[in-house]
Computed example of a mutant assay.
Amino acid sequence: MLPWWREDVGAVLRMQASLKARHPGIEKRRSRRSLTYVLDLEVPCYETRRVTIVFGTRHTAAGARVFADGPACSRHRYEDGSLCMWHPDDPPELRWVPDRGLADLIEMARRHLFREAYWRETGVWLGPEVHLDGEGKGANG
């Protein structure tokens, strides 16, 4: 069985719409196991971060994993180091869906990275959040 991004080329093209215009330095890499996008992302008031977006063979388009270089200390990261930007049970308006395009996912990552950096400085998370311990309300990031 082919991964969604090999099977539905039209969906990939729609998802990438306006991506190069907004992020001209983005790199696209494709292998048998993944479709990956890599870019340097400016984070307001903080350092630019290298962001990697990975679509694996076992996930749907909505199952993108987003990674960033730099400090990994955060309660908003999964065990594999990917950013936890929303809770899986959040409604579609609080999480990324492929119809919004990759540019929207990148902007969500930018906001998340800003919140992480601010949290590391102040101990305050700007925005709604949910944790396994039940603390907080709403989306993770």
Rank of each mutant, 00 (worst) to 15 (best):
Met1Arg: 11
Leu2Ser: 13
Trp4Ile: 12
Trp5Thr: 12
Glu7Phe: 05
Asp8Gln: 15
Val12Pro: 00
Gln16Val: 06
Ser18Glu: 14
Ser18Gln: 10
Leu19His: 04
Lys20Arg: 15
Pro24Asn: 02
Ile26Gln: 10
Glu27Lys: 14
Lys28Cys: 10
Arg29Leu: 14
Arg29Ser: 12
Arg30Phe: 03
Arg30Asp: 04
Ser31Val: 02
Ser31Arg: 03
Arg32Phe: 03
Arg32Cys: 04
Leu35Lys: 08
Leu35Val: 04
Leu35Phe: 12
Leu35Asn: 07
Thr36Gly: 01
Thr36Arg: 15
Val38Trp: 02
Val38Arg: 15
Leu39Tyr: 00
Val43Pro: 04
Pro44Leu: 01
Pro44Met: 09
Cys45Ala: 07
Thr52Glu: 15
Ile53Ala: 05
Val54Ser: 05
Phe55Val: 01
Arg58Glu: 14
His59Ala: 12
His59Cys: 12
Ala61Lys: 12
Gly63Cys: 04
Val66Pro: 02
Ala68Lys: 01
Asp69Leu: 05
Gly70Thr: 03
Cys84Lys: 08
Met85Cys: 08
Asp90Gln: 04
Trp96Asn: 03
Gly101Asp: 02
Gly101Leu: 11
Leu102Arg: 12
Ala103Cys: 09
Asp104Thr: 14
Glu107Asp: 13
Arg110Pro: 00
Arg110Gly: 00
His112Thr: 14
His112Arg: 09
Tyr118Val: 04
Tyr118Leu: 07
Tyr118Met: 08
Glu121His: 10
Glu121Phe: 11
Leu126Arg: 07
Gly127Ala: 07
Gly127His: 05
Pro128Arg: 15
Val130His: 14
Val130Trp: 15
His131Ser: 06
Leu132Pro: 13
Asp133Tyr: 11
Glu135Cys: 11
Lys137Cys: 05
Ala139Cys: 13
Asn140Glu: 01
